[in-house]
Protein backbone atom coordinates (compact mmCIF):
# COMPACT_ATOMS: atom_id res chain seq x y z
CA UNK A 1 0.00 0.00 0.00
CA UNK A 2 1.27 3.47 -0.93
CA UNK A 3 -0.34 6.60 0.42
CA UNK A 4 -0.63 9.53 -1.96
CA UNK A 5 -1.97 12.86 -0.79
CA UNK A 6 -4.49 14.38 -3.21
CA UNK A 7 -2.75 17.75 -2.81
CA UNK A 8 0.14 16.30 -4.85
CA UNK A 9 -2.34 15.45 -7.60
CA UNK A 10 -3.73 19.00 -7.41
CA UNK A 11 -0.26 20.47 -7.95
CA UNK A 12 0.45 18.18 -10.88
CA UNK A 13 -2.87 19.05 -12.54
CA UNK A 14 -2.18 22.76 -12.09
CA UNK A 15 1.29 22.49 -13.64
CA UNK A 16 0.11 20.35 -16.55
CA UNK A 17 -2.72 22.80 -17.36
CA UNK A 18 -0.24 25.64 -17.72
CA UNK A 19 2.57 23.74 -19.37
CA UNK A 20 0.48 22.08 -22.08
CA UNK A 21 -1.01 25.43 -23.06
CA UNK A 22 2.40 27.07 -23.57
CA UNK A 23 4.47 24.21 -24.98
CA UNK A 24 3.42 22.48 -28.12
CA UNK A 25 3.92 18.73 -28.48
CA UNK A 26 7.41 18.24 -29.96
CA UNK A 27 6.09 15.72 -32.49
CA UNK A 28 3.69 18.32 -33.89
CA UNK A 29 6.57 20.72 -34.21
CA UNK A 30 8.72 18.13 -35.97
CA UNK A 31 5.87 17.31 -38.33
CA UNK A 32 5.64 21.01 -39.32
CA UNK A 33 9.40 21.31 -39.76
CA UNK A 34 9.40 18.28 -42.06
CA UNK A 35 6.38 19.50 -44.02
CA UNK A 36 7.74 22.97 -44.68
CA UNK A 37 10.70 21.39 -46.52
CA UNK A 38 8.48 19.58 -49.01
CA UNK A 39 5.26 21.64 -49.26
CA UNK A 40 4.76 23.15 -52.71
CA UNK A 41 1.69 25.29 -51.96
CA UNK A 42 2.97 28.75 -51.00
CA UNK A 43 0.02 29.70 -48.84
CA UNK A 44 0.30 26.41 -46.91
CA UNK A 45 4.00 27.08 -46.40
CA UNK A 46 3.30 30.57 -45.14
CA UNK A 47 0.68 29.31 -42.68
CA UNK A 48 2.97 26.59 -41.31
CA UNK A 49 5.69 29.21 -40.89
CA UNK A 50 3.27 31.38 -38.90
CA UNK A 51 2.35 28.36 -36.73
CA UNK A 52 6.01 27.68 -35.99
CA UNK A 53 6.60 31.31 -35.00
CA UNK A 54 3.49 31.17 -32.83
CA UNK A 55 4.78 28.06 -31.07
CA UNK A 56 8.13 29.75 -30.39
CA UNK A 57 6.51 32.85 -28.96
CA UNK A 58 4.14 30.89 -26.72
CA UNK A 59 7.02 28.85 -25.30
CA UNK A 60 9.34 31.83 -24.81
CA UNK A 61 6.78 34.11 -23.16
CA UNK A 62 4.68 31.50 -21.33
CA UNK A 63 1.51 32.53 -23.11
CA UNK A 64 -1.16 30.23 -24.56
CA UNK A 65 -0.54 28.88 -28.06
CA UNK A 66 -4.26 29.30 -28.75
CA UNK A 67 -6.87 31.51 -27.10
CA UNK A 68 -9.17 28.50 -26.78
CA UNK A 69 -7.34 26.96 -23.86
CA UNK A 70 -9.93 24.23 -23.88
CA UNK A 71 -11.94 22.06 -21.57
CA UNK A 72 -9.71 19.96 -19.36
CA UNK A 73 -9.99 16.21 -19.72
CA UNK A 74 -8.10 13.84 -17.45
CA UNK A 75 -7.38 10.16 -17.64
CA UNK A 76 -6.14 8.89 -14.28
CA UNK A 77 -4.79 5.35 -14.17
CA UNK A 78 -4.66 4.62 -10.47
CA UNK A 79 -2.68 1.63 -9.22
CA UNK A 80 -4.79 -0.61 -7.01
CA UNK A 81 -2.09 -0.49 -4.31
CA UNK A 82 -2.57 3.27 -3.93
CA UNK A 83 -4.44 4.72 -0.97
CA UNK A 84 -5.55 8.31 -1.57
CA UNK A 85 -5.48 10.57 1.47
CA UNK A 86 -5.96 14.25 2.24
CA UNK A 87 -9.43 14.83 0.83
CA UNK A 88 -11.69 14.28 -2.16
CA UNK A 89 -9.75 13.52 -5.33
CA UNK A 90 -12.28 15.15 -7.70
CA UNK A 91 -12.26 18.34 -5.66
CA UNK A 92 -8.46 18.32 -5.66
CA UNK A 93 -8.35 17.91 -9.44
CA UNK A 94 -10.83 20.72 -10.03
CA UNK A 95 -8.92 22.97 -7.64
CA UNK A 96 -5.77 22.24 -9.65
CA UNK A 97 -7.58 23.19 -12.86
CA UNK A 98 -8.98 26.41 -11.34
CA UNK A 99 -5.57 27.46 -9.99
CA UNK A 100 -3.78 26.55 -13.22
CA UNK A 101 -6.21 28.55 -15.34
CA UNK A 102 -6.15 31.55 -13.02
CA UNK A 103 -2.41 31.71 -12.35
CA UNK A 104 -1.55 30.75 -15.91
CA UNK A 105 -3.64 33.50 -17.51
CA UNK A 106 -5.63 30.90 -19.41
CA UNK A 107 -9.11 31.48 -20.79
CA UNK A 108 -12.10 30.30 -18.80
CA UNK A 109 -14.38 28.64 -21.32
CA UNK A 110 -16.75 26.46 -19.28
CA UNK A 111 -20.46 27.16 -18.78
CA UNK A 112 -22.27 25.45 -15.92
CA UNK A 113 -25.46 24.44 -17.71
CA UNK A 114 -25.47 23.63 -21.44
CA UNK A 115 -28.64 25.69 -21.97
CA UNK A 116 -28.48 28.44 -19.35
CA UNK A 117 -24.79 28.93 -20.17
CA UNK A 118 -23.41 30.85 -17.20
CA UNK A 119 -19.59 30.86 -17.24
CA UNK A 120 -18.12 29.18 -14.14
CA UNK A 121 -15.21 31.67 -14.39
CA UNK A 122 -12.56 29.16 -13.35
CA UNK A 123 -12.69 26.63 -16.21
CA UNK A 124 -14.07 23.88 -14.00
CA UNK A 125 -15.37 21.28 -13.86
CA UNK A 126 -12.97 19.06 -15.79
CA UNK A 127 -14.06 15.83 -17.45
CA UNK A 128 -12.40 13.10 -15.39
CA UNK A 129 -11.95 9.43 -16.26
CA UNK A 130 -10.64 7.06 -13.58
CA UNK A 131 -9.20 3.67 -14.38
CA UNK A 132 -7.97 1.17 -11.82
CA UNK A 133 -4.78 -0.58 -12.90
CA UNK A 134 -2.07 -2.74 -11.34
CA UNK A 135 0.71 -1.24 -9.25
CA UNK A 136 1.22 1.65 -6.83
CA UNK A 137 1.56 4.63 -9.16
CA UNK A 138 -0.85 7.14 -10.62
CA UNK A 139 -0.51 7.99 -14.29
CA UNK A 140 -2.14 11.27 -15.22
CA UNK A 141 -2.84 12.17 -18.81
CA UNK A 142 -4.25 15.67 -19.21
CA UNK A 143 -5.73 17.28 -22.31
CA UNK A 144 -6.83 20.87 -22.85
CA UNK A 145 -9.33 20.25 -25.64
CA UNK A 146 -10.37 23.10 -27.89
CA UNK A 147 -13.89 23.07 -29.24
CA UNK A 148 -13.24 24.17 -32.82
CA UNK A 149 -12.17 20.60 -33.48
CA UNK A 150 -14.30 18.94 -30.79
CA UNK A 151 -17.43 20.32 -32.48
CA UNK A 152 -16.48 18.67 -35.77
CA UNK A 153 -16.19 15.19 -34.22
CA UNK A 154 -18.78 12.49 -34.91
CA UNK A 155 -20.07 9.14 -33.74
CA UNK A 156 -22.06 6.61 -35.72
CA UNK A 157 -23.44 3.18 -34.95
CA UNK A 158 -22.58 1.32 -38.14
CA UNK A 159 -23.85 -2.15 -39.04
CA UNK A 160 -21.41 -5.10 -39.08
CA UNK A 161 -22.12 -5.44 -42.82
CA UNK A 162 -20.80 -1.90 -43.39
CA UNK A 163 -17.34 -3.32 -42.66
CA UNK A 164 -14.09 -1.45 -43.07
CA UNK A 165 -15.41 0.42 -46.14
CA UNK A 166 -18.18 1.91 -44.02
CA UNK A 167 -15.68 2.99 -41.39
CA UNK A 168 -13.37 4.51 -43.97
CA UNK A 169 -16.18 6.46 -45.64
CA UNK A 170 -17.39 7.76 -42.30
CA UNK A 171 -13.89 8.96 -41.34
CA UNK A 172 -13.31 10.70 -44.69
CA UNK A 173 -16.75 12.28 -44.66
CA UNK A 174 -16.15 13.61 -41.14
CA UNK A 175 -12.76 15.07 -42.04
CA UNK A 176 -14.14 16.72 -45.20
CA UNK A 177 -17.01 18.26 -43.32
CA UNK A 178 -14.66 19.49 -40.59
CA UNK A 179 -12.56 21.29 -43.22
CA UNK A 180 -11.13 24.58 -41.98
CA UNK A 181 -13.38 24.69 -38.90
CA UNK A 182 -11.35 22.07 -37.06
CA UNK A 183 -8.08 24.04 -37.39
CA UNK A 184 -6.06 21.70 -39.61
CA UNK A 185 -3.52 20.09 -39.77
CA UNK A 186 -5.53 17.79 -37.55
CA UNK A 187 -4.99 14.59 -35.63
CA UNK A 188 -7.76 12.09 -36.33
CA UNK A 189 -8.54 9.90 -33.33
CA UNK A 190 -10.75 6.95 -34.18
CA UNK A 191 -12.46 4.54 -31.79
CA UNK A 192 -13.97 1.39 -33.24
CA UNK A 193 -15.98 -1.22 -31.33
CA UNK A 194 -17.19 -1.48 -27.76
CA UNK A 195 -20.42 0.37 -27.09
CA UNK A 196 -21.52 3.92 -27.86
CA UNK A 197 -19.61 5.52 -25.00
CA UNK A 198 -16.64 3.17 -25.20
CA UNK A 199 -15.83 4.02 -28.82
CA UNK A 200 -16.00 7.74 -28.00
CA UNK A 201 -13.65 7.29 -25.07
CA UNK A 202 -11.03 5.29 -26.98
CA UNK A 203 -11.25 7.78 -29.86
CA UNK A 204 -10.36 10.54 -27.40
CA UNK A 205 -7.42 8.51 -26.10
CA UNK A 206 -6.34 7.94 -29.71
CA UNK A 207 -5.96 11.70 -30.26
CA UNK A 208 -3.18 11.80 -27.66
CA UNK A 209 -1.24 8.75 -28.77
CA UNK A 210 2.27 9.75 -29.79
CA UNK A 211 2.35 10.90 -33.40
CA UNK A 212 5.39 8.70 -33.91
CA UNK A 213 3.94 5.49 -32.45
CA UNK A 214 2.76 2.54 -34.51
CA UNK A 215 -0.39 0.56 -33.93
CA UNK A 216 0.49 -2.81 -32.35
CA UNK A 217 -1.94 -4.58 -34.64
CA UNK A 218 -0.39 -4.82 -38.14
CA UNK A 219 -3.83 -4.67 -39.80
CA UNK A 220 -4.69 -1.37 -38.11
CA UNK A 221 -1.15 -0.03 -38.44
CA UNK A 222 -1.56 -0.36 -42.21
CA UNK A 223 -5.01 1.22 -42.16
CA UNK A 224 -3.75 4.20 -40.14
CA UNK A 225 -1.14 4.94 -42.80
CA UNK A 226 -3.53 4.38 -45.71
CA UNK A 227 -6.13 6.69 -44.19
CA UNK A 228 -3.52 9.35 -43.48
CA UNK A 229 -2.49 9.26 -47.12
CA UNK A 230 -6.11 9.50 -48.31
CA UNK A 231 -6.84 12.43 -46.00
CA UNK A 232 -3.74 14.29 -47.10
CA UNK A 233 -4.95 14.06 -50.71
CA UNK A 234 -8.08 16.08 -49.81
CA UNK A 235 -6.19 19.38 -50.26
CA UNK A 236 -7.76 20.94 -47.17
CA UNK A 237 -4.32 21.92 -45.88
CA UNK A 238 -3.17 24.19 -43.04
CA UNK A 239 -6.04 26.46 -41.93
CA UNK A 240 -8.04 25.07 -44.85
CA UNK A 241 -6.35 27.00 -47.64
CA UNK A 242 -5.10 23.91 -49.48
CA UNK A 243 -1.86 21.98 -49.27
CA UNK A 244 -0.45 18.55 -48.56
CA UNK A 245 -0.73 18.57 -44.79
CA UNK A 246 -4.36 18.15 -43.76
CA UNK A 247 -3.65 15.58 -41.06
CA UNK A 248 -0.55 14.87 -38.97
CA UNK A 249 -1.72 11.42 -37.97
CA UNK A 250 -4.61 8.99 -37.93
CA UNK A 251 -4.76 6.89 -34.77
CA UNK A 252 -7.17 4.02 -34.42
CA UNK A 253 -8.05 2.33 -31.13
CA UNK A 254 -10.32 -0.71 -31.11
CA UNK A 255 -12.26 -2.73 -28.55
CA UNK A 256 -14.28 -5.95 -28.77
CA UNK A 257 -17.92 -5.33 -29.63
CA UNK A 258 -21.34 -6.98 -29.84
CA UNK A 259 -22.34 -9.41 -32.64
CA UNK A 260 -24.91 -6.86 -33.83
CA UNK A 261 -22.79 -3.72 -33.76
CA UNK A 262 -19.98 -1.67 -35.26
CA UNK A 263 -19.75 1.62 -33.32
CA UNK A 264 -17.31 4.19 -34.70
CA UNK A 265 -16.27 7.52 -33.19
CA UNK A 266 -14.09 10.07 -34.97
CA UNK A 267 -12.60 12.60 -32.59
CA UNK A 268 -10.81 15.43 -34.34
CA UNK A 269 -8.03 17.35 -32.68
CA UNK A 270 -6.47 20.56 -33.94
CA UNK A 271 -2.92 21.57 -34.84
CA UNK A 272 -2.15 22.63 -31.27
CA UNK A 273 -3.42 19.36 -29.70
CA UNK A 274 -2.41 19.92 -26.09
CA UNK A 275 -1.71 17.01 -23.82
CA UNK A 276 0.83 16.09 -21.20
CA UNK A 277 1.46 13.12 -19.02
CA UNK A 278 2.95 12.59 -15.59
CA UNK A 279 3.43 9.59 -13.37
CA UNK A 280 3.23 10.06 -9.61
Amino acid sequence: MREINVSIIKEVVKDLCMSCNYNVDKNIRNCFLENIKVETNNMAKEIIDIYLKNQDLAREENIPICQDTGMVILFLDIGQEVHLVGGNIKEAINLGVAQGYEEGYLRKSIVLDPINRINTKNNTPAVIHFNIVEGNNIRIRLLAKGFGSENMSKLKMLKPSDGYEGIKNFILETVKEAGPNACPPIIVGVGIGGTMEKCALIAKEATIRSLTDKNEDPFWAKKELELLEEINKLNIGPAGFGGNLTSMGVKINTYPTHIAGLPVAVNISCHVTRHEEKII
Binding site: I50, N54, E61, C66, K121, C183, A239, C270
Partner: peptide, 28 residues
Protein backbone atom coordinates in the same frame (compact mmCIF):
# COMPACT_ATOMS: atom_id res chain seq x y z
CA UNK B 1 -10.40 34.81 -42.16
CA UNK B 2 -7.84 35.14 -39.39
CA UNK B 3 -5.24 32.44 -38.93
CA UNK B 4 -6.64 29.96 -36.44
CA UNK B 5 -4.41 28.74 -33.66
CA UNK B 6 -1.76 31.43 -34.05
CA UNK B 7 -3.15 33.33 -31.09
CA UNK B 8 0.07 34.11 -29.23
CA UNK B 9 1.51 35.78 -32.32
CA UNK B 10 -1.73 37.62 -33.13
CA UNK B 11 -1.85 39.16 -29.65
CA UNK B 12 1.14 41.25 -30.74
CA UNK B 13 -1.03 43.00 -33.34
CA UNK B 14 -3.27 44.47 -30.63
CA UNK B 15 -2.36 47.96 -29.36
CA UNK B 16 -5.23 48.56 -26.95
CA UNK B 17 -8.23 46.71 -25.57
CA UNK B 18 -11.25 47.75 -23.54
CA UNK B 19 -14.41 45.91 -22.49
CA UNK B 20 -17.34 48.05 -23.61
CA UNK B 21 -20.37 45.92 -22.69
CA UNK B 22 -21.66 42.55 -21.46
CA UNK B 23 -18.81 42.32 -18.97
CA UNK B 24 -20.65 39.52 -17.15
CA UNK B 25 -19.89 37.23 -20.09
CA UNK B 26 -16.23 36.98 -19.12
CA UNK B 27 -14.15 36.20 -22.18
CA UNK B 28 -17.31 36.65 -24.30
Amino acid sequence: IAISGAAALMSKCVESSKVICFEELGTE
